[in-house]
Simulated assay, not measured.
Amino acid sequence: MNNVVFWNPPEAVLASMREDARAGDVDAMYVLGVLLTRDPPDLEGARFWLTQAAKAGDPEAMTSLAALLTDRVDPPSLAGARFWLTEAANAGNAEAQFSLGYLLASRLDPPELGDARFWYTRAAQVGDPHSQFNLAHLLLNQLDPPDVDAARTWYTKAANLRHINAMTSLGSLLLNRLDPPDVAAARSWFTRAADAGDAEAMVRLGVLLSDRLDPPDVAAARSWFTRAADAGHPRAARNLRVLRWKHRG
Rank of each mutant, 00 (worst) to 15 (best):
E11G: 00
V13S: 12
V13W: 12
L14A: 04
L14E: 09
S16K: 15
E19D: 15
E19C: 13
D20V: 00
A21V: 08
A23N: 12
D25C: 03
A28S: 12
M29N: 02
V31I: 15
L32S: 03
G33L: 07
G33A: 04
V34I: 10
L35Q: 07
L36A: 00
T37R: 00
R38Q: 15
R38G: 13
R38D: 13
P40A: 12
P40Y: 00
P41S: 10
D42M: 09
D42N: 14
L43W: 01
G45Q: 08
G45A: 04
F48I: 05
L50G: 01
L50E: 05
A53R: 09
A54S: 15
A54P: 09
K55H: 14
A56R: 11
A56L: 08
D58E: 14
P59E: 07
P59W: 03
P59I: 03
A61N: 04
M62E: 15
T63L: 07
T63N: 15
S64C: 12
L65F: 08
L65H: 04
A66M: 05
A67I: 07
A67Q: 15
L68N: 08
D71Q: 14
V73N: 00
V73F: 10
V73M: 13
P75K: 13
P76Q: 12
S77N: 15
S77C: 13
S77Q: 11
L78D: 02
L78N: 04
R82K: 14
F83G: 09
F83E: 10
F83P: 05
E87N: 08
A88E: 00
A89F: 08
A91H: 01
A91K: 09
G92C: 07
G92D: 10
N93P: 08
A94W: 09
A94V: 11
E95Y: 07
A96K: 06
A96I: 04
A96L: 08
F98R: 07
F98K: 10
L100N: 01
G101E: 00
G101N: 08
Y102L: 12
Y102F: 14
L104T: 06
A105P: 06
A105Y: 09
R107F: 10
R107V: 04
L108V: 11
D109C: 09
P110S: 01
P110Y: 11
E112I: 12
E112V: 13
E112T: 12
L113M: 11
L113Q: 07
G114T: 14
D115V: 03
D115I: 05
F118A: 08
F118Q: 10
Y120M: 05
T121P: 01
R122M: 07
A123S: 12
A124M: 10
A124P: 04
G127Q: 03
G127K: 07
D128S: 11
D128V: 04
P129Q: 01
H130F: 12
F133N: 09
N134Q: 11
L135W: 06
L135P: 01
H137L: 09
L138S: 00
L139F: 07
L140G: 03
N141A: 12
L143E: 05
L143W: 01
L143Q: 05
